[in-house]
């Protein structure tokens, strides 16, 4: 078991954003996490990655360690990488530097070596730059390495955010709406990249996505949230026909035609 949550909860004032979620994820799985707007998907990510403090009584275990009260950088050190719905790339840093920060935990030299400019430090710096350039080539941003992240298009920034997470060489990759705002062609590209990454590095992945085709095509298993609670879990086909899921989506007149089409079809 790579990730397990027990009774995971988070409230904001009177609002139960995440409400007693028990969640289990096996190593190597690609899991979809879906639910209507405001159902608690991003909050779930923020809890697992340590950005929010869970409520009393919650438990999070990652790779057998109790991480309920870990700070985010310690969770990152366990091999958990995530992207953000609003991207949060480092705007005033170059594209390459963004990945280098992602690789932070794997850059093996300290400040003293940096000041002395030791051979080891210079070799290490050359190595990580080469590796990050390779990764940039893989996600198709190599030509932009020296540009500031703020100069990229929104779609390119999305790729950069994914690249930064990959630079962490994670075991568990959590993607919060990686395809939002991408054109259909780019969504296909992104899918290829995600599947490619998964095969290449043997990752475990959780994808939050509103474009249900992405989830249905890539995930073996899907978890559905509504009002902070887990209302269904199973294969895409099982979930599609689940009564509670259809109600959660259609009962509230979603505007997204695609949701309706995919769920009914």
């Amino acid at each position: 078991m790579l990730l397990r949550t027990e009774n995971l909860s988070k409230h904001f004032g009177g609002l139960r954003a995440v409400d007693g979620i028990d969640f289990e994820l096996e190593e190597g799985e690609v899991r979809g996490l879906i639910g209507p707007n405001g159902s608690g998907k991003s909050t779930f990510f923020n809890l697992v990655s340590g950005i929010y403090r869970p409520d009393e009584g919650s438990r999070i275990r990652i790779g057998g360690q109790d991480t309920t009260h870990f700070e985010p950088h310690r969770i990152a050190a366990l091999g958990v990488a995530r992207t953000f719905q609003l991207l949060r790339v480092f705007s005033e840093m170059t594209v390459l530097e963004n990945l280098l920060v992602g690789h932070h935990l794997h850059v093996a030299y300290g400040p003293v070596a940096a000041v002395l400019g030791t051979r080891r430090m210079r070799n290490e710096e050359r190595r990580v730059r080469e590796e990050m350039m390779e990764l940039l080539a893989f996600i198709g941003l190599a030509d932009f390495a020296a540009m500031l992240a703020s100069e990229l298009s929104v779609g390119q920034r999305r790729l950069l955010a994914l690249g930064r997470a990959m630079a962490m060489r994670p075991r568990l990759l959590m993607l919060d709406e990686p395809a939002a705002g991408l054109s259909p062609v780019n969504v296909d590209n992104l899918l290829r990249i995600i599947v490619g990454l998964k095969e290449r590095y043997g990752l475990t992945v959780i994808i939050v996505e509103h474009i249900l085709r992405v989830v249905m095509d890539t995930c073996e298993k899907v978890t559905v949230l509504d009002h902070g609670q887990k209302i269904a879990e199973g294969t895409p086909d099982e979930v599609k026909t689940d009564h509670a899921v259809i109600e959660a989506y259609l009962g509230r007149e979603m505007e997204d035609d695609e949701v309706r089409r995919v769920l009914q079809g």
Binding site: A81, R88, F90, E97, H104
Partner: peptide
């Protein structure tokens, strides 16, 4: 610089 640009994203990338 990462802390300056976005402390939350920096922490998620493993920066203390």
């Amino acid at each position: 610089m990462a802390v300056r640009e976005d402390p939350v994203a920096a922490a998620a990338a493993g920066v203390n």
